[in-house]
Each structure stands twice: as C-alpha cells, then as structure tokens.
Nucleic acid binder design. Structure first.
Lengths: 181, 181
DNA sequence: AAGCGTCACAAACAAGTGTTTTGTACGATC
DNA sequence: GATCGTACAAAACACTTGTTTGTGACGCTT
C-alpha cells in the first residue's frame, strides 16, 4: 500500500479513536506506520490531510448506512439506525465532529451537503409509497433523514432517555398537522 | 467582574469564534482580558475550564431556545427554528462541536442529556394537544426534538437543499405508519 | 501593626507542535 | 549510462502549547 493511502487510513483511524481535536501529526504517522514528513510531502499540511480523511470518512459512512438499509430492508428504519449506532458508535461520534469542522472547510461542507442530498433521495425511494406524488415522496425522504440524524444525536448523548423506535412511530401516528407541527 | 467569570465568558466566546479544536489557553486569556496563569489557578487546567464553559453554553443555548419559543408562540416551530439558526449560527456550530466532545466528558454529557430531556418535556407541553394521553404527548415532544436537531444539522451544512418548514409539514401530513416509518 | 490567605500578574518552563531540511534509494527518460 | 523527478526516511527546526514559578498587592482577622 502506498504511503499516501496509508496516511489517509491512519488519519481516519485517529479521527475515530482520538477525535479531530486531539489528533496530532505524529499520531497519524504512528497509526499509519508512515513517516512524519510524508504528511507534508503528500498533502502539504496535516490539516489538508485531515480534511481529505474526513471527506473519505463521510463517504464510507454513507456507504455503510446504505448497505445496512439495502441488504436487509428493515422492519423499522429507526430501530435499524439505533442498532447501527450501537454497533459503530465511534464512527458516529467522529461524524458529529466532522459536521462541526465543516463550517470552516468549504470542501468538506460540500461533500457533506452532497451526501445529505443523496441520502434524502435514496430514503425517499426506499421508504415512500410509490403511489404518492413525486414531491411528496421527496419530502418524506427529507423527513426521514431529519429523523435519523436527530435520533442519532440523542442516542449518542443518552441512549436510555432518547426516543425509541416505538416512541417515534407512536408520535408519528398521533401527530396531526395544525398542532404546531 | 471577577477573573473567574471573565475566563468563562471568554472561553464561551472562543468556542463560538474559533471552535473547541482551535481554542488555546492564550486565546481564552486574550478574549477574557484575564491573565494566562489564572486558568490554572481557578480551574486547574485549560480543559477543565473549557468543559465548564461548554456546560454553561448549553444552558445558555437552552434558555435562548426556550425564550424564542415561549415569548411568541410560533405559527410553525420548524420555521422558527430555522430563523433562530440563521440568527445565531455560530452558537449552533459550537453546539455541534460540544456534542462531539461530550463523548469523552461525562460531566458535559450528563448536562447535555438533562438539557435534552427537559427540551423533550417542554416541547410536549407546548406542542402536543392536551387531550392526548400523557405517554403520547411525551412521544410527540421527543419527536419534535428529534426533528429540530435533525433540521439544524441539515441547515447548517446546506441551507438551500435542507428541508424547509413546509417540506416537513407536508411530509408529516403524507406519512402513514406501515410504510417503514 | 503584624500575619495570613486570596488573587492577579509577568516571566519562565519543559514538552509537544507542525513543518522543513537534508539525504538516499529507485525508476524512467533521454 | 548520466540525469532527473518521485517517494520515503531521519533529524532538526522554529514555534506554540499548557502549566508552573516567583512576586507583590489587597482585604481580613487578631
């Protein structure tokens, strides 16, 4: 494996294990088995490397989510999401930090924006009834992504008190437009 | 104002302006007009100070959200949330980073967990029809917080393609339980 | 007035930081 | 076969980092 690729792999691992804020150039070098100086050689700076690693990480993350939803169509999307979260917790934690860093990284922000858009689109294909109008189906896709990310953010902080899959479905059933929602 | 309070204020400002990852002890000292050494004196370490600042920041953030929703009951909660986001963008960005840091900071995580729980509760009081059963109302509160946080995370990344208030209400109207949601 | 604890300040500290330099090995090119 | 550009490695670099030290001022009690 080329040094360049090793560095990105190592950087992604550091993002998960130490987080963006506490990852040093030497951490990455150690984690990837590469030389410290190759960071500057291949990427110009540690920061450029981390940005590239974060972009790749989001792609990985999207793929994983896609696979999990596609390979076995879940009975409940929310339930499946919670399972995924428990299974790959560090990935999601790193993901949150990446979201925050995107504010000051246009490239990264663009990548995240695209990932979100395709997520909305694919969710609408999988979950919205085909009989509905196109616009409505896309709206449902958007709603699902909104619920998924919101669910993740709560389960990350407090799995016990965060809404369960049943809670969400019950609320969705009960809610009537006009009551502020 | 006491040096200790100045430090926390300065730290909170740094969290917004520079982000957790790029805030140094000297940044905080400069922003608060305090002396560098007082960080160690009053808090033991820069990290302890930042944790305390993040906890206070979440409290502030919760208060701001509460006020915004209470003082004028909004026609659409989602619309109001989006307006708040545009108005106080740095606050929300910092908030995301705080969420990520919570993973390794039990104190902070506890504070966030409590804030989420009260948010769910208060949302259920404001938005769920009083006629509904208690459990259902709480479920609706949880649903609303889920939607709010999910909405924030999308608008932060791409305000143009993120779901609008209308999109969400349309989707909520159209969605039927049994279709995966 | 003397002693004491609290607090703020400037300066210094050692450790860690990202980056650069220097050198070498290896192929491809002419 | 000499030359050149690429890729990696060790060491050094200059700088920033969080923390500590030493000093003095202020308020309080005795």
């Amino acid at each position: 494996m080329k040094e360049r690729d090793k560095l990105i792999e190592g950087a992604k691992r550091c993002l998960q294990e130490r987080g963006y804020a506490h990852t040093t150039a030497r951490d990455i070098a150690r984690a990837s088995g590469a030389n410290l100086a190759s960071i500057g050689y291949h990427f110009g700076s540690k920061d450029a490397l981390l940005v590239e690693a974060m972009i790749e990480a989001t792609a990985d993350w999207a793929d994983k989510l896609r696979q999990a939803l596609v390979e076995d169509v879940p009975e409940s999307v929310w339930q499946r999401a919670i399972e995924l979260l428990d299974l790959h917790r560090p990935v999601f934690v790193a993901g949150i930090e990446v979201f925050a860093q995107a504010e000051r990284r246009p490239q990264l922000r663009q990548a995240l924006a695209d990932a979100q858009e395709t997520a909305r689109l694919e969710l609408s294909h999988w979950l919205a009834e085909a009989a509905l109008p196109q616009a409505t189906r896309r709206a449902i896709g958007a709603l699902c992504l909104t619920l998924l990310t919101g669910l993740v953010l709560q389960h990350l902080i407090d799995p016990d008190r965060a809404p369960t899959a049943e809670t969400l479905t019950e609320a969705l059933r009960a809610v009537r437009v006009g009551a502020g929602g």
